[in-house]
Design a protein around this nucleic acid. Sequence first.
DNA 1: TCTTGACTTGAAGTTGACTTCAAGTTATAT
DNA 2: ATATAACTTGAAGTCAACTTCAAGTCAAGA
Lengths: 149, 149
Amino acid sequence: MFYTIGEMAQRLNVAPSTLRYYDKEGLLPFVERSSGGIRMFKDEDMEWLQMLGCLKKAGMPLKEIRSFIELSRQGDGTIDRRLDLIEKQRRSVLEQQKQLEATLLMLDYKRWYYQTAQKAGTCAVHDAMPPEDIPEPFRPLVAEWKAEE
Amino acid sequence: MFYTIGEMAQRLNVAPSTLRYYDKEGLLPFVERSSGGIRMFKDEDMEWLQMLGCLKKAGMPLKEIRSFIELSRQGDGTIDRRLDLIEKQRRSVLEQQKQLEATLLMLDYKRWYYQTAQKAGTCAVHDAMPPEDIPEPFRPLVAEWKAEE
DNA sequence: TCTTGACTTGAAGTTGACTTCAAGTTATAT
DNA sequence: ATATAACTTGAAGTCAACTTCAAGTCAAGA
């Protein structure tokens, strides 16, 4: 029914010190303690911690995550503000998706570039390459670079 | 034809100190200097710097970006290793895209959760809600959480 | 009961990516 | 010629997110 910090850390694949740090930063106000002072994690706490991990991977700073947790504990009066925080983070994720899409296009171009160079044995193969030999998806990308010079 | 560090910083929307830091870290070996020691950025340098920004936004550490730049300057002998680096980063971006997709689903669920709670005036509205009232896309998400308890 | 491994805390150390500061130099506009 | 704005460097400071350390406490098995 209860897990120690070590067990919980293993389940979440993080270091126990990380969980202690989160606790110190006020991100785990819901975690109970035994009479001896040892943290007792519940299954229910996993849900919070997984959401925490999710938000963290989406680039939300721990301070903002703490704000959200604090608001949640203040009850129904903070629903509007929690919704605001969620929508703000949602917009940030959409923005990051766009960014990753652009980065992926660039990486795909570079991959093609080096695959082609690998076959030819030299990057010089690209110097004399006519634009129509560049795969269609990459043409706007390369054109954009040329335009700036 | 040439830009000072201030002009270049403005074009890239970063602080001049950031460019100096990148230079110190060996990320700008291609930037030339005037006789007086002032950095002279070329249009061509923009391409590198934009790629740098792209890789940075994709979570690549500056050290790895430097490796890539160093390999590039070593000529055709490093094509294989550059391709490896690109493919590694490409896989990382695909992984991050999956992660953002999962985070977005969670945020969309939370958004619906708080929008519903807002209309009802309380989060308690969700306690008694039958599963079929939860919008279809969120059901696997909620089921997964319940399963862990 | 005693040992041992996992837990506790507070404090200090680390890493990455910058930013700020101080002291000095270069370039431009009057 | 000189004022001033923008550049230069090295060193130190900052911030987020941890990690490590030291010293001690708790809990489970022999």
